[in-house]
Design a protein around this nucleic acid. Structure first.
Length: 780
RNA sequence: GCCGAAGUGGCGGAAUUGGUAGACGCGCUAGAUUCAGGUUCUAGUCUGGGCAACCAGGUGGAGGUUCGAGUCCUCUCUUCGGCACCA
C-alpha cells in the first residue's frame, strides 16, 4: 500500500499552481459572473497564528468553490503593515521598522503559500509602501478640500514622564503602560474626519445590511448611539453668558430645578471668575480632572457637586435655577450640560436628595386624576401627562416634546435635534510608522495641503524612536523644514501620522487596480467587483473598522469615485480560536503556532481540522484531539481508492442503469453534491459539508471492499471518486489534485466544473412511511 | 438597565420549510490483525427496562398552539457578547 505523503504532494501541486498562474484574475469580460471574496488583511506581526489559518481557510473554500461554479473570483491578500508593533520592535530590539515589517511579510507570505491558499499574489498590497500610502494622502487632501477633514483641539491621554500621547489602550488603570507614570488629559490640535456628518446615514443604512449578522448590526447601532431630543439655551442671570443643554425629555422642562455642568465644561471658568465661589469650584474641578477615567465615571460612584453661585433662566417660565458642577455629567455626552429634573430622572433625583434641591413633579401617569401632592420617594421616568407646566398642561409626553421643541425654535432659544455617541474620527497619531499627514503649516497662509504633484510625502527612513518629546517626525529636521507651497516662505510640515484604520478603510479597492500611478484606483476597474460579495473577519472589528470603511465608501461616493454607498454585501464573522477554553494570548502563555500542525499533518489536514471541528461562526477550541480524525479521513480515502483503483473503468465511461448497492452509491454521491453545494454556497456550514464527504467515503468503502465488482458498480465507484475529488477540493486542495490525477482526470481539479446534481437520483425508490399516533412513532 | 446571540450525549457538534432527535468526528468498550506499541478492520456507545423484537422517558425550566415542537408563541433561568451615570 502506498502511503499518502502530504509534504511531498502538497509541495508539488503548489509549484504547479504557481507555474501555471492559475489564481491570477483578469479584468472580467462582459457577461462574466464576478465574485469578490475578501478576508480581513492581517497585520504582519511575525508569524501567522491559528486565527489566521481559520479565517483564510474559510475564505479559500468559498473562493475555490466559486471558481468551480464558473464565476470570475477576486481573491487577494495584503498586509496592514503600518502600526505600533513595528515601532515597539524598533524601541525594544533596535530593529528597523521597515526591515522588520518586510521580513515578517516575507515569512507570512511563505506560510500562506504553504497552506495552499488560492490568492492572486500579483495584486498583493502592503499599506506601508509609498505606492499605497500616497493615496491615503490623496484622499486626505480631497477631504480637506471638501471640509470633511478639519483641525480641532481635543483632550488626549498624556504621560508627563514620557512626554508623549497615549492611545486609550496604552493607559492601564490610569497609568502609562511603559513607565507606569500618571496619565492626564491634555488638549492637542488634531486632525478629524467628519464621520458625524454621516451618522444618520450610517445608522439608517444598517437596516439595509441584510447580509450582515444581527449582532454586528446591533453593535453598530449602539456605537452610533443616536438619541433624539432637543437643545435648549438657558441664559445666565446677571451675565451675557448662555449655556446650551440637550434633553430627550423637554416635556419635563417645567420640573427643572437646577442645571448641572461637567467639570470640563468651558463655561465653568467664566461663571465663577471674580466671584467668591471661585476657589471652591476650581478645587472641585481640579479634583475631578485629576482622577483617572474609570474611577471618575464608574456607575454607582457617589454623587458629588459644587454650587457655582450663579443662576440660569429657564426660557419657558423665566424661573431662575441654580447652576452646579456635578461629577455625574459627562462632557462627551450631549452638550456637557443638563437641565436637571429630579422628579423624573433618577440621577437628578439622587443628586437633589444629596444636596437638598427642590424636587418638582410635572408628569403624572396617563389616566390618573392629577398630581396627588405627596413628595416623591424616587424618580418616575415614564412618559405620562404633563401638569404644572403652564400652557402645556394636559398634553401627553410625546405631544409635549414635539410642541415644546417647535415653540423653542420659534422663539429662538432651542430646536429639536439629535446627538450621537459616535464622534468625529480623530486620525492624528504622534507616531513614526504611519502615513505622514500631507499638510504644511505656514505663518502667512496657515495650514496648506501638500499639492498633489508633490505626493507622496515620503516617510523618512530613520527617526528617533522612543524618545520623549512628541512625534518622532518632529525631530527629523530635514523632514520638518519645508517651503510653503503657496507663498514659498519657510514653513513646517505636519509631523503626525495617520491612524492605521485609514489604510484598512479602503485597501480592498487597491487590489482591484494595484499598479495605478494616477489615482487610488480607476473607477472602471472596481465597478465589476464592488461591492464585496463576502467579507470574512473577526467580530473584534464590528465597530471600528467596519464603521470606518462604511464611512469611507459614502465619502468616496460623494467624491464621485463609486456609485454605491455600502461596500460589503455579506459579512461573515468567524469565531475566535481558543485553547483550553481561553482566548490565546501572550499573557496566558497559551499561544501556539500552526506550523507544528502543518509540519506534522500537512496543509490539507490542518485546513480540514479548522473547518470541521466547529461551525465557522462559533469559537473553535484548538485541541489536538480532533486533528487525528481529519488525518485519518484523508488516509482512509487514499486506502479505499488504492483498493479499487485497478477496477475502475476509464474516465468518461458512460454509467449503465444500476440497482442495488450501485444505485445506493450513486444516490449517496448525488446527495453529497447537493449537501456540499448548499453548505458552501448558501449557508457557510462548512463543518457539515466535510461530514457529508465523510459519509460518502463510508458508503464508497462498503463497495470498495476489494471484491470483484460488475460494470455498473465499477462505473458508480468512478463517479463517486471523481465527485469526491471535486467537492472536497476546496477543503483539501492538494490531496484532491493528487486524487484527480490518479483518477486520470485532465488538468487541475480546481479548474473542473462543479458537479451537477441528478435530481432523479435524490428521490428515494422506497419510502419509509412513518406512522405517528399522538406524536409517538407507532409503525413504519 | 437597554440591546443582541446561544443553551441538544462523556466531548466538538448534526437535524434547509414544524414531520423517525443525536448525522459526522473525537473519546470510550469489546473483538480481529500485530511479538509488542502504533496503524487498520468489525461491533457497540442518550437514559431506564428487556435475551431480543420492543417499551417508556429525553433537546436549560414552566406553560401554550398543533395530529405532531429541538424548531412556533408566552413566561422564566443560565451563559456569552455589545452599549451604558447617554441627559
Amino acid at each position: 500500500m502506498s502511503g499518502y505523503d502530504a509534504k511531498r504532494i502538497e509541495a508539488r501541486w503548489q509549484s504547479r499552481w504557481d507555474e501555471e498562474r492559475v489564481f491570477e484574475t483578469a479584468h472580467p469580460e462582459p457577461g462574466d459572473r464576478t465574485y469578490y471574496c475578501l478576508e480581513m488583511l492581517p497585520y504582519p506581526s511575525g508569524k501567522i497564528h491559528r486565527g489566521h489559518v481559520r479565517n483564510y481557510s474559510i475564505g479559500d473554500v468559498v473562493a475555490r468553490y466559486r471558481r468551480m461554479r464558473g464565476e470570475s473570483v477576486m481573491h487577494v491578500m495584503g498586509w496592514d503593515s503600518f502600526g505600533l508593533p513595528a515601532e515597539n520592535a524598533a524601541i525594544h530590539r533596535g530593529a528597523d521598522p521597515g526591515e522588520w515589517t518586510r521580513s515578517n511579510i516575507a515569512t507570512m507570505r511563505g506560510q500562506f503559500k504553504r497552506l495552499g491558499f488560492s490568492y492572486d499574489w500579483s495584486r498583493e498590497v502592503a499599506t506601508c509602501e509609498p505606492e499605497f500610502y500616497r493615496w491615503n494622502q490623496w484622499f486626505f487632501l480631497r477631504m480637506l478640500e471638501k471640509g470633511i477633514a478639519y483641525r480641532a483641539k481635543r483632550l488626549l491621554n498624556w504621560c508627563d514622564d514620557c512626554a508623549t500621547v497615549l492611545a486609550n489602550e496604552q493607559v492601564i488603570s490610569g497609568r502609562c503602560w511603559r513607565c507606569d507614570g500618571p496619565v492626564r488629559r491634555r488638549e492637542f490640535d488634531q486632525w478629524f474626519l467628519r464621520t458625524t456628518d454621516y451618522a444618520d446615514e450610517l445608522l439608517e443604512d444598517i437596516d439595509r445590511l441584510e447580509g450582515w449578522p444581527d449582532r454586528v448590526r446591533t453593535m453598530q447601532r449602539n456605537w452610533i448611539g443616536r438619541s433624539a431630543g432637543a437643545e435648549v439655551r438657558f441664559d445666565v442671570a446677571d451675565s451675557d453668558l448662555s449655556i446650551e443643554v440637550f434633553t430627550t425629555r423637554i416635556d419635563t422642562i417645567y420640573g427643572a430645578t437646577y442645571m448641572a455642568l461637567a467639570a470640563e465644561h468651558p463655561a465653568v471658568k467664566s461663571l465663577v471668575e471674580g466671584t467668591d465661589r471661585r476657589e471652591e469650584v476650581h478645587a472641585f474641578v481640579e479634583a475631578q480632572l485629576s482622577k483617572n477615567l474609570e474611577d471618575r465615571f464608574a456607575e454607582g460612584v457617589e454623587k458629588l457637586g459644587v454650587f457655582t453661585g450663579r443662576y440660569a433662566i429657564n426660557p419657558f417660565n423665566d424661573e431662575q435655577i441654580p447652576i452646579w458642577v456635578a461629577n455625574f455629567v459627562l462632557m462627551d455626552v450631549g452638550t456637557g450640560a443638563i437641565m436637571s429634573v429630579p422628579a423624573h430622572d433618577q440621577r437628578d433625583f439622587d443628586f437633589a436628595t444629596t444636596f437638598g434641591l427642590e424636587i418638582r413633579p410635572v408628569i403624572r401617569p396617563v389616566g390618573s386624576e392629577g398630581f396627588d401632592g405627596k413628595p416623591p420617594t424616587e424618580a418616575t421616568p415614564e412618559y405620562g401627562v404633563v401638569h404644572s407646566s403652564g400652557e402645556y398642561d394636559g398634553l401627553e409626553s410625546a405631544e409635549a416634546c414635539a410642541k415644546m421643541a417647535a415653540d423653542a425654535e420659534a422663539r429662538g432659544f432651542g430646536r429639536a435635534t439629535r446627538t450621537y455617541r459616535l464622534k468625529d474620527w480623530g486620525v492624528s497619531r504622534q507616531r513614526y510608522w504611519g502615513t505622514p499627514i500631507p499638510v504644511i503649516y505656514c505663518e502667512e497662509c496657515g495650514p496648506v495641503g501638500v499639492p498633489d504633484d508633490q505626493l507622496p510625502v515620503l516617510l523618512p527612513d530613520k527617526a528617533p524612536l522612543g524618545e520623549p518629546g512628541g512625534s518622532p517626525l518632529s525631530m527629523v529636521e530635514t523632514f520638518v523644514h519645508v517651503d510653503c507651497p503657496t507663498c514659498g516662505k519657510p514653513a513646517r510640515r505636519e509631523t503626525d501620522t495617520m491612524d492605521t484604520f485609514v489604510d484598512s478603510s479602503w485597501y480592498y479597492f487597491r487590489y482591484l487596480d494595484p499598479q495605478n500611478t494616477q489615482a487610488p484606483f480607476d473607477p472602471a476597474k472596481q465597478a465589476p467587483w464592488m461591492p464585496v460579495d463576502l467579507y470574512i473577519g473577526g467580530i473584534e472589528h464590528a465597530t471600528l473598522h467596519l464603521i470606518y470603511t462604511r464611512f469611507w465608501s459614502k465619502m468616496m461616493r460623494d467624491l464621485g469615485l463609486v456609485e454605491y454607498d455600502e461596500p460589503v454585501t455579506r459579512l461573515f464573522t468567524q469565531g475566535m480560536v481558543i485553547k483550553d477554553g481561553f482566548k490565546m494570548s501572550k499573557s496566558k502563555g497559551n499561544v501556539v503556532d500552526p506550523d507544528e500542525m502543518v509540519e506534522r499533518y500537512g496543509a490539507d489536514t490542518t485546513r480540514l481540522f479548522c473547518l470541521f471541528a466547529a461551525p465557522p461562526e462559533r469559537d473553535l477550541d484548538w485541541s489536538e484531539t480532533g486533528v487525528e480524525g481529519c488525518a485519518r479521513f484523508l488516509n482512509r480515502i487514499w486506502r479505499v481508492f488504492d483498493r479499487v483503483a485497478q477496477q475502475l473503468p476509464p474516465h468518461g465511461t458512460e454509467i449503465p442503469p444500476v440497482d442495488g448497492e450501485a444505485f445506493a452509491l450513486r444516490r449517496k454521491t448525488h446527495r453529497t453534491i447537493h449537501r456540499v453545494t448548499e453548505d458552501i454556497g448558501a449557508r457557510l456550514h462548512l463543518n457539515t459539508a466535510v461530514s457529508a464527504v465523510m459519509e460518502l467515503i463510508n458508503t464508497i468503502a462498503t463497495l470498495a471492499d476489494g471484491s470483484e465488482r460488475d460494470a455498473g458498480e465499477r462505473a458508480a465507484l468512478r463517479e463517486a471518486f471523481e465527485t469526491l475529488a471535486k467537492v472536497l477540493s476546496p477543503f483539501a486542495p492538494h490531496f484532491c489534485e493528487e486524487l484527480w490525477s490518479r483518477l486520470g482526470g485532465s488538468g487541475f481539479v480546481l479548474q473542473c466544473a462543479w458537479p451537477e446534481v441528478d435530481r432523479a437520483l435524490l428521490i428515494e425508490d422506497s419510502v419509509t412511511l412513518v406512522v405517528q399516533v399522538n406524536g409517538k412513532l407507532r409503525a413504519r
